[in-house]
Amino acid sequence: MTDGELVARARDGDHAAFGELVDRHRTAVYRAALAALSSHADAEDAAQDAFVLAWRRLGSFRGDASFKTWLLTIAWHQAINRRRSLVGWWRRTVQADAETVEAGVPAPYVASGSSPALGAGFCRTTGFDRSSNETPEQLLAKGRLRNDIRRAIRALSPKLRDALLLAQSGDYSYEEIGAMLKAPLGTIKWRVSEARRGVKKALRERGYDDVG
């Protein structure tokens, strides 16, 4: 069943049809919220708010764009509102520090006992991977580099950071990113390349001389 057919049924009050739509798009909505908020709890709340709001506004969906694009714009708006609130800012500030300590080590270095709820990007290190040919010093340097890159991405301006995270997520097309950020395609491309330059500049300032 296509999204359009499910939307038509949901408009008539079919909760099951809307549930199907939620299942199809919940990951994309959640990741868009996560790109804006950097906090799993806030992203889940914002994603739920977006779906509830979309249910209430189903009557206003005209079909000019795809349902997913329409839904993502609602989700992005909800996430930005939450980001601008003081409470959300405080939680993200506190949680970002905690996650920075936990994260920074890529998946290959995680032992089998890592918690799946944290996701692949937030894994604790339990030691170096014996199967790798890299020395512990090299692994440590890599971990430090990834940590610094993550920190530099977080330090970017919101416009550049949002464009970079949404573009690298792999879940969105150019049109969908443009609809969320309300910017044309060329501007989005420019913001992504500017974000990369900003991160490299931050790495050089931290002492990484071989950064291009």
Binding site: Y30, G119, A120, G121, Q168
Partner: peptide, 9 residues
């Protein structure tokens, strides 16, 4: 950047 948004609800 991809890892930073890779999780799911």
């Amino acid at each position: 950047a991809r890892h930073m948004t890779e999780s799911a609800p």
